[in-house]
C-alpha cells in the first residue's frame, strides 16, 4: 500500500470541477484509492460527491491511500494531479 499526504493549496478547495476530473482519473486504475481529512473517515476517490464532501479547503491536509496491482502508477498520477490542480 502507498500512502502520502498533501496540503490543499487551491483557494476554493476541492471544488466541483477538479473533484470530477480527479474521480475520472482515478476510475482508470484498478487499485483501491481513498482520501481522508486529518481524523476523518476514508472516502473513495472515485466519487466526485465524496471528494467534495470532504470539505477540504485551502490548507487542509489530505491523506491518500492507494492499494492494488497498479498502486505505484496510481499514486504518482494522483499526486501529480493534486500538485497541478489543487
Amino acid at each position: 500500500m502507498k500512502t502520502f499526504t498533501y496540503t490543499i493549496n487551491d483557494a476554493l478547495g476541492i471544488h466541483a470541477r477538479p473533484a470530477g476530473q480527479l474521480a475520472k482519473l482515478v476510475a482508470g486504475f484498478g487499485s483501491k484509492i481513498t482520501m481522508a481529512k486529518e481524523g476523518g473517515a476514508d472516502v473513495s476517490a472515485k466519487s466526485i460527491m465524496s471528494l467534495m464532501g470532504l470539505g477540504a479547503t485551502k490548507g487542509t491536509n489530505i491523506t491518500v491511500k492507494v492499494e492494488g496491482p497498479d498502486e505505484e502508477a496510481a499514486a504518482k498520477a494522483v499526486e501529480d494531479f493534486l500538485k497541478a490542480n489543487l
Binding site: 470530477g20 473513495s44 466519487s47 466526485i48 465524496s50
Partner: peptide, 16 residues
C-alpha cells in the same frame, strides 16, 4: 455551461 458538465459527473458518481 460548466454546471451541466458538473451535473453529469455528479449523476455518474459511484457512491451516489
Amino acid at each position: 455551461a460548466m454546471i451541466f458538465d458538473v451535473h453529469k459527473m455528479m449523476l455518474e458518481d459511484e457512491g451516489y
